[in-house]
Protein backbone atom coordinates (compact mmCIF):
# COMPACT_ATOMS: atom_id res chain seq x y z
CA UNK A 1 0.00 0.00 0.00
CA UNK A 2 1.30 3.51 -0.73
CA UNK A 3 2.14 5.79 2.15
CA UNK A 4 -0.39 8.46 3.06
CA UNK A 5 2.04 11.09 1.74
CA UNK A 6 2.14 9.43 -1.68
CA UNK A 7 -1.62 8.98 -1.57
CA UNK A 8 -2.14 12.69 -0.87
CA UNK A 9 0.30 13.53 -3.66
CA UNK A 10 -1.59 11.34 -6.14
CA UNK A 11 -4.93 12.85 -5.11
CA UNK A 12 -3.50 16.33 -5.62
CA UNK A 13 -2.23 15.38 -9.08
CA UNK A 14 -5.62 13.86 -9.96
CA UNK A 15 -7.35 17.14 -9.05
CA UNK A 16 -4.85 19.16 -11.08
CA UNK A 17 -5.21 16.76 -14.06
CA UNK A 18 -8.99 17.05 -14.06
CA UNK A 19 -8.72 20.84 -14.05
CA UNK A 20 -6.25 20.74 -16.96
CA UNK A 21 -8.55 18.38 -18.91
CA UNK A 22 -11.55 20.62 -18.23
CA UNK A 23 -9.60 23.69 -19.34
CA UNK A 24 -8.52 21.87 -22.53
CA UNK A 25 -12.12 20.84 -23.28
CA UNK A 26 -13.37 24.37 -22.66
CA UNK A 27 -10.66 25.68 -24.98
CA UNK A 28 -11.64 23.25 -27.73
CA UNK A 29 -15.34 24.09 -27.38
CA UNK A 30 -14.54 27.82 -27.54
CA UNK A 31 -12.39 27.14 -30.62
CA UNK A 32 -15.29 25.28 -32.25
CA UNK A 33 -17.74 28.09 -31.46
CA UNK A 34 -15.33 30.72 -32.81
CA UNK A 35 -14.76 28.65 -35.98
CA UNK A 36 -18.51 28.19 -36.47
CA UNK A 37 -19.05 31.94 -36.16
CA UNK A 38 -16.18 32.79 -38.47
CA UNK A 39 -17.23 30.20 -41.01
CA UNK A 40 -20.98 29.57 -40.61
CA UNK A 41 -22.17 26.19 -42.00
CA UNK A 42 -24.17 28.00 -44.66
CA UNK A 43 -21.00 29.70 -45.94
CA UNK A 44 -19.15 26.40 -46.21
CA UNK A 45 -22.24 24.91 -47.80
CA UNK A 46 -22.35 27.66 -50.41
CA UNK A 47 -18.68 27.31 -51.19
CA UNK A 48 -19.24 23.65 -51.94
CA UNK A 49 -22.54 23.95 -53.77
CA UNK A 50 -21.89 23.66 -57.43
CA UNK A 51 -24.33 22.28 -59.88
CA UNK A 52 -23.50 20.54 -63.10
CA UNK A 53 -25.83 20.44 -66.03
CA UNK A 54 -24.45 18.56 -68.96
CA UNK A 55 -25.70 16.81 -72.04
CA UNK A 56 -24.22 13.61 -73.42
CA UNK A 57 -24.61 11.78 -76.70
CA UNK A 58 -23.98 8.14 -77.56
CA UNK A 59 -20.42 9.11 -78.61
CA UNK A 60 -19.67 9.87 -74.94
CA UNK A 61 -20.09 6.19 -74.05
CA UNK A 62 -16.42 5.16 -74.04
CA UNK A 63 -16.68 1.58 -72.81
CA UNK A 64 -18.39 -1.64 -73.84
CA UNK A 65 -20.09 -3.67 -75.03
CA UNK A 66 -19.94 -5.65 -71.79
CA UNK A 67 -22.38 -6.96 -69.22
CA UNK A 68 -20.35 -6.33 -66.06
CA UNK A 69 -19.14 -3.36 -64.10
CA UNK A 70 -16.10 -2.85 -61.83
CA UNK A 71 -15.94 -4.15 -58.26
CA UNK A 72 -13.89 -6.69 -56.29
CA UNK A 73 -15.46 -9.14 -58.70
CA UNK A 74 -17.47 -8.30 -61.85
CA UNK A 75 -20.99 -7.13 -61.01
CA UNK A 76 -23.75 -7.59 -63.56
CA UNK A 77 -24.98 -4.28 -64.91
CA UNK A 78 -28.53 -5.54 -65.32
CA UNK A 79 -28.74 -7.45 -62.02
CA UNK A 80 -32.23 -7.83 -60.63
CA UNK A 81 -34.03 -6.80 -63.80
CA UNK A 82 -35.64 -8.62 -66.64
CA UNK A 83 -34.63 -8.00 -70.21
CA UNK A 84 -31.41 -6.65 -71.63
CA UNK A 85 -29.15 -8.34 -74.10
CA UNK A 86 -25.99 -8.16 -72.00
CA UNK A 87 -24.24 -5.75 -74.33
CA UNK A 88 -24.05 -2.56 -72.37
CA UNK A 89 -22.27 0.60 -73.41
CA UNK A 90 -20.90 2.50 -70.47
CA UNK A 91 -19.81 6.02 -69.58
CA UNK A 92 -18.60 7.50 -66.32
CA UNK A 93 -19.28 11.09 -65.30
CA UNK A 94 -18.25 12.90 -62.13
CA UNK A 95 -20.97 14.67 -60.17
CA UNK A 96 -20.48 17.88 -58.28
CA UNK A 97 -20.55 17.59 -54.53
CA UNK A 98 -20.71 14.46 -52.44
CA UNK A 99 -23.34 13.11 -50.09
CA UNK A 100 -22.45 13.18 -46.40
CA UNK A 101 -23.25 10.27 -44.13
CA UNK A 102 -22.26 9.52 -40.56
CA UNK A 103 -24.27 9.54 -37.37
CA UNK A 104 -27.33 11.77 -38.00
CA UNK A 105 -27.29 12.97 -34.39
CA UNK A 106 -23.68 14.08 -34.59
CA UNK A 107 -23.19 15.39 -38.08
CA UNK A 108 -24.97 17.40 -40.73
CA UNK A 109 -26.07 15.13 -43.56
CA UNK A 110 -26.24 15.86 -47.23
CA UNK A 111 -27.52 14.10 -50.33
CA UNK A 112 -27.18 14.75 -54.02
CA UNK A 113 -30.19 15.45 -56.20
CA UNK A 114 -29.72 14.14 -59.73
CA UNK A 115 -32.16 15.15 -62.47
CA UNK A 116 -32.04 13.26 -65.74
CA UNK A 117 -33.79 13.54 -69.08
CA UNK A 118 -33.41 11.05 -71.93
CA UNK A 119 -34.25 11.85 -75.54
CA UNK A 120 -34.81 8.96 -77.96
CA UNK A 121 -33.62 6.23 -75.63
CA UNK A 122 -33.49 2.76 -77.12
CA UNK A 123 -33.57 -0.30 -74.87
CA UNK A 124 -32.75 0.26 -71.24
CA UNK A 125 -30.51 2.65 -69.34
CA UNK A 126 -29.00 1.81 -65.96
CA UNK A 127 -27.35 4.07 -63.40
CA UNK A 128 -24.75 2.86 -60.92
CA UNK A 129 -22.59 4.70 -58.42
CA UNK A 130 -18.93 4.82 -57.49
CA UNK A 131 -17.59 6.87 -54.60
CA UNK A 132 -13.94 7.63 -53.96
CA UNK A 133 -13.08 7.71 -50.27
CA UNK A 134 -11.48 10.90 -49.03
CA UNK A 135 -8.66 9.51 -46.91
CA UNK A 136 -7.87 6.32 -48.80
CA UNK A 137 -7.93 5.27 -52.42
CA UNK A 138 -10.64 2.68 -51.70
CA UNK A 139 -13.93 2.97 -53.59
CA UNK A 140 -17.52 2.23 -52.69
CA UNK A 141 -20.45 1.34 -54.93
CA UNK A 142 -24.17 0.60 -54.71
CA UNK A 143 -25.21 -2.89 -53.59
CA UNK A 144 -27.01 -5.12 -56.08
CA UNK A 145 -28.12 -8.03 -53.91
CA UNK A 146 -29.33 -8.58 -50.37
CA UNK A 147 -30.29 -5.95 -47.80
CA UNK A 148 -29.60 -2.42 -48.97
CA UNK A 149 -29.95 -3.17 -52.68
CA UNK A 150 -30.41 -0.07 -54.79
CA UNK A 151 -30.37 0.82 -58.44
CA UNK A 152 -32.09 2.99 -61.03
CA UNK A 153 -33.16 1.87 -64.49
CA UNK A 154 -35.02 3.66 -67.26
CA UNK A 155 -36.82 1.81 -70.04
CA UNK A 156 -36.81 3.37 -73.50
CA UNK A 157 -38.81 2.55 -76.61
CA UNK A 158 -36.95 4.06 -79.56
CA UNK A 159 -35.28 2.04 -82.30
CA UNK A 160 -31.58 1.21 -81.94
CA UNK A 161 -28.96 3.23 -83.79
CA UNK A 162 -25.95 2.29 -85.84
CA UNK A 163 -23.23 0.09 -84.28
CA UNK A 164 -20.88 2.04 -82.07
CA UNK A 165 -17.27 2.63 -82.96
CA UNK A 166 -14.37 3.64 -80.79
CA UNK A 167 -15.60 2.00 -77.61
CA UNK A 168 -13.48 -0.50 -75.70
CA UNK A 169 -14.19 -3.04 -73.01
CA UNK A 170 -12.89 -1.97 -69.59
CA UNK A 171 -9.41 -3.47 -69.14
CA UNK A 172 -10.32 -5.09 -65.81
CA UNK A 173 -12.95 -5.22 -63.08
CA UNK A 174 -10.76 -4.18 -60.13
CA UNK A 175 -7.90 -1.68 -59.73
CA UNK A 176 -8.99 -0.37 -63.10
CA UNK A 177 -8.38 3.14 -64.35
CA UNK A 178 -11.39 4.76 -65.95
CA UNK A 179 -11.70 7.81 -68.12
CA UNK A 180 -14.55 10.23 -67.46
CA UNK A 181 -16.83 11.58 -70.13
CA UNK A 182 -16.85 14.97 -68.46
CA UNK A 183 -13.99 16.88 -66.96
CA UNK A 184 -14.09 18.03 -63.37
CA UNK A 185 -13.24 21.67 -62.72
CA UNK A 186 -9.75 20.74 -61.58
CA UNK A 187 -8.95 19.40 -65.02
CA UNK A 188 -10.14 22.36 -67.05
CA UNK A 189 -6.49 22.90 -68.00
CA UNK A 190 -7.01 20.17 -70.52
CA UNK A 191 -5.61 17.09 -68.88
CA UNK A 192 -7.98 14.20 -68.98
CA UNK A 193 -9.06 13.24 -65.50
CA UNK A 194 -8.83 9.52 -64.79
CA UNK A 195 -9.94 7.67 -61.71
CA UNK A 196 -8.72 4.41 -60.26
CA UNK A 197 -11.54 2.15 -59.13
CA UNK A 198 -10.03 0.08 -56.34
CA UNK A 199 -11.80 -2.43 -54.09
CA UNK A 200 -9.29 -4.18 -51.88
CA UNK A 201 -10.80 -3.85 -48.39
CA UNK A 202 -12.50 -7.22 -48.34
CA UNK A 203 -14.31 -9.69 -50.56
CA UNK A 204 -17.70 -8.00 -50.19
CA UNK A 205 -16.97 -4.63 -48.59
CA UNK A 206 -17.69 -1.20 -49.98
CA UNK A 207 -21.29 -1.87 -51.03
CA UNK A 208 -23.24 -0.44 -48.12
CA UNK A 209 -22.67 3.29 -48.03
CA UNK A 210 -23.93 4.66 -51.35
CA UNK A 211 -27.55 4.34 -52.40
CA UNK A 212 -30.14 5.42 -54.96
CA UNK A 213 -33.52 6.43 -53.63
CA UNK A 214 -36.47 8.56 -54.65
CA UNK A 215 -37.70 8.88 -51.07
CA UNK A 216 -35.33 10.16 -48.38
CA UNK A 217 -37.14 8.12 -45.74
CA UNK A 218 -35.60 5.09 -47.50
CA UNK A 219 -32.00 6.16 -47.02
CA UNK A 220 -30.64 2.65 -47.58
CA UNK A 221 -31.91 2.83 -51.13
CA UNK A 222 -34.50 1.42 -53.47
CA UNK A 223 -34.48 -0.45 -56.76
CA UNK A 224 -36.38 1.68 -59.25
CA UNK A 225 -37.28 0.70 -62.79
CA UNK A 226 -39.29 3.32 -64.63
CA UNK A 227 -40.47 4.02 -68.18
CA UNK A 228 -40.30 7.74 -67.42
CA UNK A 229 -37.64 9.35 -69.60
CA UNK A 230 -37.42 12.31 -67.27
CA UNK A 231 -37.09 12.19 -63.53
CA UNK A 232 -34.86 12.61 -60.56
CA UNK A 233 -33.36 10.57 -57.78
CA UNK A 234 -31.35 11.11 -54.65
CA UNK A 235 -27.91 9.74 -53.90
CA UNK A 236 -27.59 9.08 -50.18
CA UNK A 237 -24.61 8.12 -48.04
CA UNK A 238 -24.96 6.04 -44.88
CA UNK A 239 -21.30 5.26 -44.32
CA UNK A 240 -18.87 6.83 -41.91
CA UNK A 241 -15.95 7.49 -44.23
CA UNK A 242 -16.34 10.73 -46.15
CA UNK A 243 -16.11 10.70 -49.93
CA UNK A 244 -14.11 13.03 -52.12
CA UNK A 245 -15.83 12.29 -55.43
CA UNK A 246 -18.94 10.64 -56.78
CA UNK A 247 -18.85 9.04 -60.20
CA UNK A 248 -22.12 8.18 -61.88
CA UNK A 249 -21.98 5.25 -64.26
CA UNK A 250 -24.53 5.41 -67.05
CA UNK A 251 -25.03 2.32 -69.19
CA UNK A 252 -27.33 1.59 -72.11
CA UNK A 253 -27.99 -1.90 -73.45
CA UNK A 254 -28.58 -0.93 -77.09
CA UNK A 255 -26.76 1.13 -79.64
CA UNK A 256 -28.43 4.54 -79.61
CA UNK A 257 -29.71 6.67 -82.49
CA UNK A 258 -27.93 9.88 -83.46
CA UNK A 259 -30.75 11.83 -81.87
CA UNK A 260 -30.10 10.19 -78.49
CA UNK A 261 -29.32 12.64 -75.66
CA UNK A 262 -29.13 12.36 -71.93
CA UNK A 263 -29.16 15.53 -69.81
CA UNK A 264 -27.90 15.19 -66.25
CA UNK A 265 -27.90 17.78 -63.48
CA UNK A 266 -26.50 17.17 -60.02
CA UNK A 267 -26.87 19.43 -57.00
CA UNK A 268 -25.83 18.75 -53.40
CA UNK A 269 -28.55 19.48 -50.85
CA UNK A 270 -27.94 19.76 -47.10
CA UNK A 271 -30.34 18.25 -44.60
CA UNK A 272 -31.28 19.77 -41.27
CA UNK A 273 -29.32 18.25 -38.42
Amino acid sequence: MPSSGTDRDIRRKIRISFWIILLFLAGMIVLQIVAENLYPPQEIENSLQLSRNQTYTFADFKYGPQDWRPYNYPLRIDAGTAGGNGSWYVMFISLDGTPWGGNPNMERRRHLVVDYRFENLSGMAAFHLYGIRKYSPECVTNRQDGYGTSGYMVIGSDLPGMPASGTEILPGFNNVEISLSNLPASAISGTEERYLLEFNKGPASGQDSLHFTTDLSFRKGQVITTPSRQGSFYITHTGGSPLSDIILMVAVNQTQPDTFRVHITSVPEAEDP
Binding site: I21, L25, Q32, E36, L38, E107
Partner: peptide
Protein backbone atom coordinates in the same frame (compact mmCIF):
# COMPACT_ATOMS: atom_id res chain seq x y z
CA UNK B 1 -1.60 14.63 -39.98
CA UNK B 2 -4.80 15.56 -41.83
CA UNK B 3 -3.75 19.22 -41.89
CA UNK B 4 -0.36 18.19 -43.27
CA UNK B 5 -2.28 16.37 -46.01
CA UNK B 6 -4.08 19.59 -46.87
CA UNK B 7 -7.49 19.19 -45.20
CA UNK B 8 -8.64 22.78 -44.51
CA UNK B 9 -8.31 23.72 -40.84
CA UNK B 10 -11.86 25.08 -40.91
CA UNK B 11 -13.33 21.61 -41.39
CA UNK B 12 -11.31 20.29 -38.44
CA UNK B 13 -11.97 23.21 -36.09
CA UNK B 14 -15.72 23.13 -36.68
CA UNK B 15 -15.98 19.69 -35.07
CA UNK B 16 -13.07 19.85 -32.63
CA UNK B 17 -15.08 20.68 -29.50
CA UNK B 18 -17.51 17.82 -29.92
CA UNK B 19 -14.75 15.42 -30.97
CA UNK B 20 -12.69 16.35 -27.89
CA UNK B 21 -15.63 15.59 -25.58
CA UNK B 22 -16.38 12.20 -27.18
CA UNK B 23 -12.68 11.22 -27.22
CA UNK B 24 -12.44 12.13 -23.55
Amino acid sequence: VQMVFGIPATFILIGIGLASVTHL
